[in-house]
Write a protein that binds this DNA or RNA. Structure first.
Lengths: 153, 153
DNA sequence: GTAATTGCTAAACCTTACTTTAGGTCAAGG
DNA sequence: CCTTGACCTAAAGTAAGGTTTAGCAATTAC
C-alpha cells in the first residue's frame, strides 16, 4: 500500500531473471502494461513480478506467448490478483499440460507399434496424421497408408 | 532395382504430403540429397519417401531439424536403409520422446504443488529453474525463491 | 511442335521470440 | 554542476522453419 509499490524495469528484470529488452518486448505483446512516471520511464506493479514469473513458467511448459496472454486475461482487471486468482489460471495451464502429455504419450505408443513392425508406414501407425494437426491438403502422408509399395520403399 | 526408381520432387511432395518448397528447404538442411537428371532436375530415391516421413514424424514429436539430421546420420551411407535400420533410429527418437514426456510430467507435478499452495513462487516450486534450461545469468528467478516478499507480491 | 506442367534458382518475405545497435534522455551521487 | 548508470525509442539483426515471387528452363501431353 505504500507509495513506492512501483518498480522500474531494471528491478523487474533482476527479480524475474528476464532481460530488460525481453520485458519491453512482452509489453508490446500485452503481457504487462506498466505505467509511466513523469519522465516517461516505465513503472511496474510489484505484482508484475509474479505475472512475468507465470509467463516464464507457462513458456517453459511450451505455451506460445499468445496463448499465455489469453490465460492471463483470466485474471481480474483493476485489482491485484489474489492467490486464488493465480491458482485458478494455473489450473488452466495444468490442463494444457495434461493435454500435451497425453498427446506425446499417444505418439510414443504409436511409435512403439512402428518400431515393433519396423516399417514406419503401417496402417496402425497414426503418426503420420496426428489428430492434433489438421491435414490441410486433404491427402498428404496417407498415401503411405494406402499404397503397398510405400512399405517397401 | 528398375531404372526409374528415381522420382521427381512433385511426386515426392505428393507422397509425403510436404510442399515442394519444404522439400527443397530440407535439402538445404541436408535432410535429403537428391541426384540430378541431365536437365538439372532433382531425382529422389523412392526410399526418400520414408526418409521424409521419418522427418515428419520426428518433427511432430517436437525435434528440431538439426536433431533430426543427427538421428538420420545413424542410417547407412550408400545403400538403401533396411527395416532394421529404421527400427534402430526409431529407438533413438523414442528415447528422446520418453525424455520429453518425463520432463513434462515432472513439470506438471511441480505445477500441482504450486496450485496447491497457490503461490507460484514457493521453494518447492522448481518450475522457475528447470534443470533442462541452464540459468545463464547465475541468478535469475531464484530471487523469488529467496525473498519473502516475493510470495506476497 | 507447341502449349501447359513441372521444375530450377535466388532472393525476399513471414512468424515467433527476442537481442542488438544507435542515438538520445532521466535520475542519482559527489 | 556534471558524470555515471539506468532508461527511452526505433530499427535492424538473429534463428528456425518455411513460403512466395520473379524470371527462366525442362518435361509432358496433345
Amino acid at each position: 500500500m505504500h507509495m513506492d509499490d512501483l518498480i522500474p524495469i531494471g528491478q523487474l528484470a533482476e527479480r524475474t531473471g528476464l532481460s530488460v529488452s525481453a520485458i519491453r518486448f512482452y509489453e508490446t505483446k500485452g503481457l504487462v502494461s506498466p505505467m509511466r512516471n513523469s519522465g516517461g520511464q516505465r513503472r511496474f506493479l510489484r505484482s508484475d513480478i509474479r505475472r512475468l514469473s507465470f509467463v516464464l513458467i507457462a513458456q517453459q511448459l511450451g505455451l506460445p506467448l499468445r496463448d499465455i496472454l489469453k490465460v492471463l486475461e483470466g485474471l481480474p482487471q483493476g485489482r491485484t490478483p489474489t492467490q486464488s486468482d493465480w491458482t485458478r489460471i494455473s489450473m488452466t495451464v495444468r490442463e494444457e499440460l495434461d493435454d500435451r502429455i497425453a498427446k506425446l504419450t499417444r505418439m510414443r505408443n504409436n511409435l512403439d507399434g512402428c518400431i515393433g513392425c519396423g516399417c514406419l508406414s503401417l496402417k496402425k501407425c497414426s503418426l503420420y496424421n496426428p489428430h492434433d494437426k489438421a491435414s490441410v491438403k486433404g491427402s498428404g502422408p496417407q498415401y503411405l497408408l494406402r499404397e503397398r509399395d510405400a512399405v517397401t520403399d
